[in-house]
Amino acid sequence: MNETQTFQLDGEDIPFAPGQSIMQAATAHGAYIPHLCWHPDFAAHGSCKLCTVKVNGRFGSSCTMAAQAGMSVENRTAELDDKRRTLLQMLFVEGNHFCPSCEKSGNCALQATAYELKMMSPHFDMFYPDRPVDASHPDVLLDFNRCIMCSLCVTASAEVDGKNIFYMGGRGLLGRRVHVSSESGRLGDTNFALSDRAASICPVGVILPKRRGFAVPIGERKYDKAPISAQVKERV
């Protein structure tokens, strides 16, 4: 007997393999669960909490919860999308996200997810933190104003590039930040390269290639073409 196991996501049967998380199984099936810090190539980080779902009535992160046969998972309900919108608003006010002047605009997962969840305003009072920009590297610009603390650069640099250029440090709202592995703290003093996986992993506009801004016209950028929720199947 080799029957496929399934669980229900918003009433739809989702098959899964043992060991898969709810997120992995849903994504493999082409179902969209909003997320920012999760990436299919890496182990779950579980920090952004956008992927919070309700499993048998209890909240949990779908990227870290193992799929189990017969579980009933709520995903795109008004209640959960409302919470996700609030989380997005938190991310928008804690950093400096000025989309009109950001090269990542149109290709940014944070922005696209906010469109998907119909975030019309940041709602909360803005923090306008003073965060650094690092232009020391010849090919790559770091603008931490846009960092959402997802750690994807840390993981990619460690696990794919084998370089350990980045590490999450600090504590709390003002303290938490990405450290660059050099005594000066500058990217230019590391062996980071534009060809590193970490150079292209950032879901927002922190790690950007120099001399390549605004290359794609408005209307043809990644998320101009289709909402982020409609692009899950492409990735399968």
Partner: peptide, 18 residues
């Protein structure tokens, strides 16, 4: 009605805030 980026998050003028 808050119309546009500047009314909503300060926009370009707010980039003096640091």
């Amino acid at each position: 009605l808050a119309l546009g980026a500047c009314a909503i998050n300060g926009g370009l003028p707010a980039q003096r805030n640091h």
